[in-house]
C-alpha cells in the first residue's frame, strides 16, 4: 500500500555513519586514558583510528548512489540551508570524514607512512610534501573530532526526528537513541576487531575497557528506548497509532525479538556477566574471547536493525491514519 521512498541503502548508510562516529569516539577516548601518564589503551586507539574513516566513507558513497541524480551531489555543497537537517548533515559528514582520515594518518608508524608514500609516483612532489609526522597531534585531532563524531551520531537521528509529518520519528528521543546506538556499535566493532586480530592478541584490560564502554552505551540506549515507548503511549493519538507499528503492528517481532532482546538485552547480559564478578567480588576479569565476539556481533546486528525498523516503520506512520479511525 505504502511506497517506501527511503530503502535499504539509507538504512545501511545510517548504520555505517553511526558506526564510524562510535569508532572514532571510542578510539579518541582510549587515546586519552592513561595510567601514571602512560597510555594503556594505545593499541585500542590505534585500531579504532584505523577503522573509523572507512564505514562513513562507504556510507556516504551509498548515500550518493541513492540519489535520483547522483552526479548532482555537489549541489549539496554549493548551498547551505540551516533549516534542512540534510544540508547541515552533509557538511558535518564531510568534515568528520576528513578528521577521521587525518586521525588515521596520525596513527601511522614511520614505516607505514614511508610505505604509503612509496606508492605515490616520485614526480608528484606536492603530495610528497604531505609526508610528515603528525603523531604528536593525535590528542588534538581527537579533541577536535569528538564534537563532530557526536554530531554525526546525533545527525543520523535528527534527519528522521525533524520530520514533523512522521509521528513515529518526530519525538525528542530519536536523536539520542541513534547516538547511543552509534557509540555502542563503535565500541562493539572495536571489540570485534581487537579480539579477531590474531597477530597481536587483545589483552584482558583492553577487552575490559571496551566491554565497560559498551555496557554504559547500551544502558543509555535502553533508557532512551523505554521512555520512547512510555512517552509515545502517553502522547497524542497520532504518536500512539504510530507506535502500534511496533506494539502489535508489522514491525513488532523484529523490534522486540531480534532488536531489543537479541541486539540489546542479551549482549548487555553477557557483558555484565563478564564484568560483574570483577567489579563486585574482585575476581580476575574473565575476558572470554567467545563471549566478547558474541556480544559484539549481536550489538552490531542490533544497531543495524534499529535503523531498519525506524526507517521503514517511520515512513508508514502518518497523520492520515487518524481519519480512518473516525
Amino acid at each position: 500500500m505504502h511506497e517506501f521512498n527511503w530503502g535499504l541503502l539509507i538504512v545501511i548508510y545510517l548504520f555505517l555513519g553511526g558506526l564510524s562516529a562510535g569508532l572514532f569516539f571510542a578510539a579518541g577516548l582510549a587515546d586519552y586514558m592513561t595510567v601514571d601518564d602512560k597510555p594503556v589503551y594505545a593499541r585500542v586507539a590505534r585500531m579504532g583510528a584505523f577503522l573509523a574513516p572507512w564505514p562513513v566513507a562507504i556510507g556516504s558513497g551509498l548515500l550518493i548512489l541513492d540519489l535520483g541524480n547522483w552526479y548532482r551531489f555537489y549541489k549539496l555543497f554549493i548551498h547551505f540551508r540551516w533549516e534542512s537537517p540534510m544540508s547541515i548533515g552533509s557538511y558535518l559528514l564531510t568534515i568528520f570524514t576528513v578528521i577521521a582520515f587525518l586521525y588515521l594518518f596520525a596513527w601511522l608508524t614511520a614505516d607505514e607512512r614511508q610505505w604509503l608514500f612509496s606508492k605515490v609516483p616520485a614526480t608528484w612532489k606536492q603530495v610528497h610534501r604531505l609526508n610528515v609526522d603528525i603523531s604528536s597531534w593525535r590528542g588534538k585531532i581527537a579533541m577536535v573530532g569528538f564534537p563532530f563524531s557526536i554530531g554525526v551520531g546525533i545527525y543520523t537521528g535528527v534527519l528522521l526526528g525533524a520530520v514533523s509529518a512522521r509521528p513515529f520519528w518526530n519525538t525528542n528521543l530519536v536523536a539520542q537513541m541513534f547516538l547511543f546506538s552509534a557509540l555502542s556499535s563503535g565500541a562493539a566493532a572495536l571489540m570485534l576487531a581487537m579480539v579477531l586480530n590474531k597477530k597481536s592478541p587483545a589483552e584482558k584490560h583492553e577487552i575490559k575497557f571496551l566491554v565497560t564502554l559498551d555496557v554504559v552505551f547500551i544502558s543509555l540506549e535502553l533508557f532512551i528506548i523505554l521512555p520512547y515507548l512510555i512517552h509515545g503511549q502517553l502522547s497524542s493519538l497520532a504518536v500512539k497509532q504510530a507506535l502500534s507499528l511496533i506494539l502489535g503492528g508489522p514491525y513488532t517481532f523484529v523490534f522486540w525479538g531480534p532488536f531489543l532482546v537479541m541486539g540489546l538485552l542479551v549482549p548487555l547480559a553477557i557483558e555484565v556477566y563478564e564484568l560483574a564478578p570483577n567489579i563486585f567480588k574482585g575476581h580476575e576479569f574473565h575476558g572470554s574471547r567467545n563471549l566478547a565476539l558474541t556480544a559484539a556481533g549481536l550489538v552490531l546486528i542490533g544497531g543495524f536493525l534499529l535503523r531498519y525498523i525506524f526507517v521503514y516503520a517511520g515512513q508508514v506512520s502518518s497523520f492520515h491514519q487518524m481519519g480512518m479511525l473516525n
Binding site: W6, N69, A165
Partner: peptide, 15 residues
C-alpha cells in the same frame, strides 16, 4: 537543482 534525495517526499504529511 533537485538531486533526488526524496527527503521532501518523506517530509510531506499529505504524500
Amino acid at each position: 537543482e533537485c538531486i533526488g534525495c526524496r527527503y521532501c517526499m518523506v517530509a510531506c504529511p499529505y504524500d
